[in-house]
Design a protein around this nucleic acid. Structure first.
Lengths: 179, 179
DNA sequence: CGGTACATGTAATCTGTTACATGATTCA
DNA sequence: TGAATCATGTAACAGATTACATGTACCG
């Protein structure tokens, strides 16, 4: 059900179409909760059915109608409840790279080094992106108010995580004797 | 399909029953790939059917027969292939805590502080566990050989990740003004 | 003329979780 | 006597991925 609440959370910033949400879930909230457009369209239908969001249909010539969604009062209440009550489990971690590393041998060393290098690049890219966002929009954290403080904390978590991943990958490459 | 390869990887250390695997997936490999006993029993059946593992049935009085599995030659080949060829995608991250933090307000601040504190504790516990394993079994990484080098790298990744999570949680609590 | 962005969906499949089910042995 | 451990499973459901499907508008 978290996807439903993630979508409602994204709607706190204002009306959005399924298409908008699918894009936004590649950015911002999407750094911490990903979802494909297929999932999103389905969830929007369910949320509408349950009265937690409302549609605003905008007819368009030549395109499918644009359907813009906003939170209802019931939606706000449901979201607030969820934030208060939701249990706090650490999500299970599943990462194929480590399963592969458990199989390290001279036969696959080169491929695993490549995989770790790619992982290092992806951490570095993510880190650079997060730092750019922080510098542009969250350069004075002490002045933030309300929700923005929470968004800042999430961003900070992303930064810590990517730094850790990157420094691990570098240490791993050194250990593996990669040039 | 990664679960199948994770199970085969666990079988590299020798014959195991479904029960053993379910326990092992709470420890060691399980730090990087979790699975419930239900998933494991299902996967074992599929792997058997495909000839990648073999069963050794041991009749037991009063208990269900114990079924001990080992990798076949075909299983070894399939696993080696997978390690060589598997693409290297960063797994999507989904963590409810951050969705909740996006909703931070004075109404839920106390609950979110509690949630972050719990997260801090879980990171600290995990970190302590990983460091204990490192000190006991991987205190001289330069001397490790073969697969054990990869296992060590995975452990190191776990240590980096937990340290990052813990230091984030501490910074977050300070930022939120939690005592 | 081809690719990307806009815009929304269905269907099939795969993967993971929760609930249910059984029954012996060992330890406090 | 009651909880934990050993030991294996089925069934239902929830959640996520992949593939398929359609059609316009705009840019180079």
């Amino acid at each position: 059900m978290s996807l439903h609440y993630a979508i409602m959370t994204a709607l706190l910033d204002g009306e959005r179409t399924g298409y908008d949400l699918a894009k936004q879930f590649d950015v911002s909230l999407g750094f911490f909760w990903t979802a494909s457009h297929q999932q999103i369209y389905r969830a929007l239908k369910e949320l509408s059915r349950d009265g937690l969001i409302e549609v605003n249909e905008i007819a368009q010539a030549g395109k499918p109608d644009k359907r813009s969604y906003r939170l209802t009062d019931a939606g706000h209440d449901a979201l607030n409840d969820w934030v208060l009550k939701e249990g706090n489990r650490t999500p299970p971690q599943r990462d194929e790279l480590f399963v592969r590393l458990y199989n390290l041998s001279s036969a696959n060393r080169a491929e695993l080094i490549t995989a770790v290098k790619e992982r290092a690049t992806s951490h570095a890219d993510r880190l650079a992106l997060y730092e750019r966002i922080r510098d542009r929009h969250y350069s004075e954290p002490a002045r933030l108010r309300g929700r923005r403080r929470g968004v800042y904390l999430a961003l900070l978590a992303g930064i810590h995580k990517e730094q850790a991943g990157l420094s691990w990958a570098e240490a791993a490459l050194a250990y593996l004797g990669a040039r």
